[in-house]
Amino acid sequence: MMAQLVYFKEWLTTLYKRHIEIILPILKLLFAFFALSMFQRMFYYNEFIDKPWVFLAVSAVQAFLPISFLYYAISILIMINLWNVSMDIFLGFVIFFIICSLAFIRVDKKHAIIIIATVLLFYLKLEYLLPVLLGMSVGFGAILPAAAGIVTYFLSVYMTDVSTLLTTSTSSSFGMGLQRIVNLILIDKKLLVLLVTFALIIFITTLLCHIFYERAWMFAIFVGNIAMVLLLLFGRLIFELDYTIWRLFLEVILGIGCCYIYRFFRGIGDVSRIEKVSFEDDEYFYYVKAVPKIKVTEKNRNVTNIKSEENEDDLLFDDITEDSDLPDKDGKEAEKE
């Protein structure tokens, strides 16, 4: 069974590398269209921009550009929607966008996908799949982008209350909406618990993955997910939050599966063939422990066609007949001449 999975992984990896010029733009287009549609549903305050052809055009451009372009497109989409609700909230989000762009996106383009993925998974109610996977794949650098994504999602939740307040209020003044958003952020214990939990789990998982041990990744998966469950249950008990317990445990199981899939495609070490090497130079001794990845190559099958003796005799007779006709024909032509 393991060999068949390795065959499939090698085949899929080879197929992707061979056709990366076609597959990657298609994947980026589909992801961009899905992300733009989901963000429009979260911040649905401007019907004019809610056009599928607009999202499709932006997604087609994104297919040939870095992923940071999608982050900027989504931010502009949010700004257009917030403009219809409150000018002060719009300006506050612009400041938040500039801070994220300078602090995360400018440093590393992959931080853009972390922010987008965090918001989408929260919206799809699959947020607990994320922290351990980020710790394994990205490391400590994923803490701040994930926090920015969590704040962006909760902003979409708060906007429902704020838009209703601003619509029904008779004496709305400049700064009222932004003040309401800040107050909700400060008093929301669920947001605080999630920010602390995600930061700690990413930190713990990253540390465990870098232990000098060949199965550290497996240890990190289980410890990270168990620690996340304990922290969330502790936060639920202390602050009386409304976590759904069965959904939490179900997502943890799915998260473990996602981590194993990620690790499988990244490469699992063959601990039966560990090699230890030592060498030195003028200043240091070096001790290296190498764990080779599991790789399986399919055997090349050679097919040999075996012909019967009758067919070979027929072919030989045909060849002799054809050869014997040639001299006669040449001789007749010579006589005519």
Rank of each mutant, 00 (worst) to 15 (best):
L36P: 02
L102M: 08
I98F: 08
M42T: 01
A112K: 02
M87Q: 13
P52K: 09
I80R: 12
I49R: 06
F69M: 12
V85W: 04
V107Q: 14
A60R: 02
I95N: 05
Y71H: 10
R41E: 09
S101I: 07
T118D: 02
R106M: 14
Y72V: 08
Y45R: 02
M38F: 06
M79Y: 08
S68N: 10
F93I: 03
A63K: 05
K109R: 14
F33V: 07
V85D: 00
L24Y: 10
A35P: 05
N84D: 15
K110Y: 15
D108G: 07
R41Y: 05
D108V: 07
F39M: 04
F55Q: 07
F55A: 10
L82V: 04
I99V: 15
F64E: 10
S75A: 15
F48T: 12
G92K: 03
A35T: 08
C100Q: 14
M79F: 12
F93A: 00
V54P: 00
Y16F: 15
I95E: 07
V119Q: 00
V119I: 09
N84Q: 15
K17Y: 12
N84H: 12
F64H: 13
R106V: 05
V94S: 07
M87C: 07
A112L: 02
V107P: 03
F97Y: 11
G92F: 04
M38T: 06
F90K: 01
I116V: 02
Y44W: 10
I99C: 06
K109Q: 14
L56P: 05
I115P: 00
L29P: 02
V54I: 15
F93K: 00
L102E: 08
I23Y: 09
F93T: 02
F64A: 13
V58E: 10
Y16H: 11
F96G: 03
I76E: 10
S86F: 03
V54C: 08
I49L: 13
L30C: 11
M79P: 00
V85Y: 06
I116Y: 01
E21R: 15
M42R: 02
L29I: 08
I49Y: 08
F43C: 02
F64S: 13
P25T: 06
V85R: 02
F34N: 06
F97C: 07
I49H: 05
V61R: 05
D50N: 15
S37Q: 12
H19F: 15
